[in-house]
């Protein structure tokens, strides 16, 4: 069986006139298999978009080859390319006085004659694509009236309409809220499985990528690409080394990044359940280190529940004051001189 997308010794970057070419990533050899849903992750500015553009044949590689279903991409005509790979770029939100249907119908361009008139097969594919992304009811709305998220759906439906085995998307989730992002990722993953499509998508949403991708491609600042199963990359520290900076740490037990806490005081916390979890988060956010041992700290907070009401008892040097809300507790603590907030900032 042919490989939908294969890069061999690929170097991507820009030719700059009169200077040495700027390499974004070098010597990549990687494959995308049929039915595989892959997320491309990497810190900002590392060249994810450049890699996607290069893999789609829109930008010339500095070195190496790209093969789509065993055909060299350079030997394909624009039309053949458009039938083999569809691309959703960050700058391709639809414009103009078109209804959503017409925009999605643009995806049939590589399949229709010069007049662009649609046959039954074309219409069926358009309706299928609209349904697949949950945009059927948007079909006859003008794209200018749609929200960014709705337009994003339309653009993805357009890519599906193109009827290619390979779909490359550059940050398709950027404009979407969390539930919509989850929805979209699930839709794309299901399409990959059910239709046997190969989908590569770049994203900043590590958490979501970890939860939905079959495979991750990690592009680090040095232009090195590491690929593997999400869970394995989390375990062996690759994710940590790709992303870790001075400000954040990878927490491999939580499977998430944690901000460096520049703690300036400790506080002990007594309590349990959701109230304790969110109190702890609030305290950490404003710069406290939360400890369990009450003796280790001058400041003690106890969450007490009376008649279904939550109260926060704050004990400082033996004095106890009762705070009726988390907000009032935080405000009180921020007002304390010894936090040294001004020093931190």
């Amino acid at each position: 069986m042919s490989v939908p997308l294969e890069a061999i010794g690929l170097s991507v970057g820009y030719e700059v006139k009169g200077q040495a070419a700027r390499h974004v990533a070098s010597d990549l050899s990687v494959q995308l298999k049929a039915g595989e849903f892959v997320c491309l992750l990497g810190p900002n500015g590392v060249g994810k978009s450049t890699l996607i553009r290069t893999l789609s044949g829109m930008q010339k590689p500095l070195a190496g080859r790209i093969r789509i279903s065993d055909t060299e991409i350079e030997q394909m005509s624009p039309k053949e390319k458009a039938r083999a790979v569809s691309v959703v770029l960050t700058d391709s939100l639809p414009q103009g006085m078109f209804d959503a249907y017409s925009v999605v119908a643009l995806g049939r361009h590589p399949h229709t004659s010069w007049t662009g008139s649609l046959g039954d097969k074309d219409r069926a594919r358009i309706e299928w694509a609209l349904k697949a992304v949950g945009a059927t009811e948007l079909a006859y709305r003008q794209v200018s009236e749609l929200s960014d998220g709705e337009r994003q759906k339309v653009v993805i439906a357009r890519a599906l309409t193109q009827e290619t085995n390979l779909i490359l998307l550059d940050e398709p989730t950027a404009f979407l809220d969390l539930p919509r992002r989850v929805e979209l990722m699930r839709t794309l993953r299901d399409l990959a499985r059910v239709e046997g499509l190969s989908i590569l998508l770049s994203t900043h949403d590590l958490d979501l990528a970890l939860r939905s991708a079959d495979k991750l491609w990690l592009l680090d600042g040095a232009g090195k690409l590491t690929t593997g199963m999400p869970e394995e990359l989390a375990l062996d520290g690759c994710i940590a080394s790709t992303f870790t900076s001075n400000e954040v740490d990878w927490d491999s037990e939580q499977g998430a990044f944690r901000m460096h806490n520049h703690t300036c005081a400790t506080v002990s916390l007594e309590g349990n359940g959701a109230a304790a979890v969110w109190t702890r988060r609030a305290l950490t956010r404003i710069g406290y280190e939360v400890v369990d041992n009450a003796d280790a700290s001058k400041l003690r907070i106890r969450i007490v529940e009376t008649d279904g009401d939550l109260n926060w008892d704050l004990e400082t040097n033996g004095e106890v004051s009762r705070k009726p809300t988390l907000q009032s507790l935080v405000r009180h603590l921020l007002g304390q001189e010894h936090i040294g907030l001004s020093e931190r900032l």
Binding site: S56, P78, A82, S86, D91, S92, G107, H109, Q162
Partner: peptide
């Protein structure tokens, strides 16, 4: 770019 991706 959009046009190019459609084979234009």
């Amino acid at each position: 770019r959009f046009a190019e991706s459609l084979g234009t």
